[in-house]
């Protein structure tokens, strides 16, 4: 029988996979990595892409992750998956937006939350458009 290791794929919002596997292939930032049991300890960020798992018995399963971190121990592989598409610009936009909301709320003495909300939604929409354009550009 082939050697196996324990694989956990978790995101902050839910558990995606947990079980034993023979091979895990993951999209690391420096190119795809294939992890077999008894691999040395390693830690690397992941790109958005497909994680392929060959489960015990040879059955294959593939899971999409939008980036994250891969941690390898000799008999345990853990993938901490991001829940969202992360890009530096996008994080920046979200940060700016949060700051803007605070500033806006302080300015509005009457507590005009509706306008702040509208502005926040505008910023959110703008950020999403930005990302979509970026993703299209890549393709």
């Amino acid at each position: 029988m082939a050697m196996t290791m324990h694989v956990d794929i978790v995101s902050a919002e839910h558990e995606l996979f947990s079980g034993t596997a023979e091979v895990v292939i993951a999209p690391a930032v420096r190119g795809e990595v294939g992890i077999y049991p008894r691999h040395t300890q390693m830690i690397t960020p992941l790109k958005p892409g497909e994680v392929r798992i060959t489960k015990q018995g040879g059955e294959e399963e593939s899971i999409y992750v939008s980036g994250g971190i891969l941690e390898v121990q000799p008999h345990v592989v853990t993938i901490l998956s991001d829940t969202a598409v992360r890009a530096h610009d996008l994080d920046e936009a979200a940060a700016m937006e949060a700051q803007k909301r605070a500033e806006q709320a302080l300015k509005d003495k009457t507590g005009d939350m509706e306008e702040a909300e509208a502005l926040a939604q505008l910023a959110e929409a703008a950020a999403q458009i930005h990302l979509i354009q970026k993703l299209r550009g890549k393709k």
Binding site: A84, Q99, A102, A105
Partner: peptide
């Protein structure tokens, strides 16, 4: 107040928090 997030609803997602947390981490 340096950053603010609200109206996360009953099922908050990590996305909604990234910005506010980043302000503090920065």
């Amino acid at each position: 107040i340096v950053s603010q997030a609200g109206h996360l609803g009953d099922a908050p997602s990590v996305n909604d928090l990234i910005g506010s947390v980043k302000v503090m981490l920065d």
